[in-house]
Simulated scan of single mutants.
Amino acid sequence: MSKLKIAVQKSGRLHDDSMKILKEIGISIDNGKDQLKASARNFPLEVFYLRNGDIPQYLRDGVVDAAIIGENVLIEKGEDITIVERLGFSKCRVSIAVPKSSNAENLKDLEGKRIATSYPNTVEQYLEKAEVKANLHIINGSVEIAPNIGLADAICDIVSSGSTLFKNGLKEIQMLLKSEAVLATSPAISAESQALIDKIQFRLKSVLRGRSNKYVLLNAPNDKLDDICKILPGMNSPTILPLAKEGWSSLHSVINKNDFWEVIDELKANGAEGILVCPIENMVL
């Protein structure tokens, strides 16, 4: 059987998060320091460590079958590349920022100004829709320094926490798009490789569902079970087991982590006691 070739960013937070999720779906990678390619011990897969900006072309040319890549890079360089799964990590945004001393407060204020960016296609399309004309300076590397050295009046770059902008005396005035890590496939992927991607995608969905949900166990009086079941429907319905204590039952279910505290408050208000909440490693449907 041929091996599936998957690209990941060679270093940085996206690299670390990508390797972490591959491990969580049961794929063990033998990667040494400074390797450009590594094989999995327990799955027909090779990982290629590449520059993020080069990955769309490798996908397009069929050099790799798939990639874990930032959505922002595909918007800039690979709109023809198919996204098969959103992975929910390495979240960021592409935004325009100006020096804190600048009078610019919105996109219209950048009419005729100079914008330094590593995302010229993204910026150009956004400006065109907003009917703003500005001069773009394409920079690969530390874009944030451009206003400080007089190269540009504004920048457009990825923003995560905003700490880099703060350190460089910049303020964010316009978000162009939000981004996260995605699994993308090559237009030239073979049927054999696609079958392997389907297996990986099944595992990813199980891990991602586990990350977004929590397992909850609680005790409740039997006369409150109907109300509590309405709060906790679970995947199909909650599991209910009788307790040794007369008139009480134990209820097991799943809750979305985003609704966690609101659900806990409702459960307590409806008579639930001894509530235990546990993380879920995988959630297979």
Score class of each variant (00 low, 15 high):
I240Y: 03
F48D: 04
A195H: 10
I115D: 02
A104F: 10
A38M: 09
Q201L: 14
K268H: 06
D265R: 15
L59N: 03
L170T: 03
N168E: 05
N148T: 12
N256T: 11
A272H: 10
E262C: 02
G141N: 07
E273R: 15
I158Y: 02
K108P: 04
A244D: 09
D34S: 14
K37H: 08
G141A: 04
L136W: 06
S118G: 14
L243E: 07
P238C: 10
K113E: 05
I173P: 03
L276V: 14
P147S: 08
A97Q: 10
I25E: 01
A7I: 05
D65Y: 00
E128R: 15
L217G: 00
L251M: 15
L218Y: 06
N270A: 03
C229P: 01
G141M: 00
F260C: 14
R93A: 13
K3G: 00
G112C: 07
R211H: 09
P44Y: 05
V63R: 13
S161C: 02
Q201Y: 00
I155K: 04
Y119S: 14
I145N: 00
A272C: 08
K230I: 05
M283I: 07
I189V: 09
V8G: 00
L22H: 01
R41W: 04
C156N: 06
N140L: 06
K3Y: 08
G274P: 02
G12T: 09
K167F: 07
R51S: 04
K100W: 00
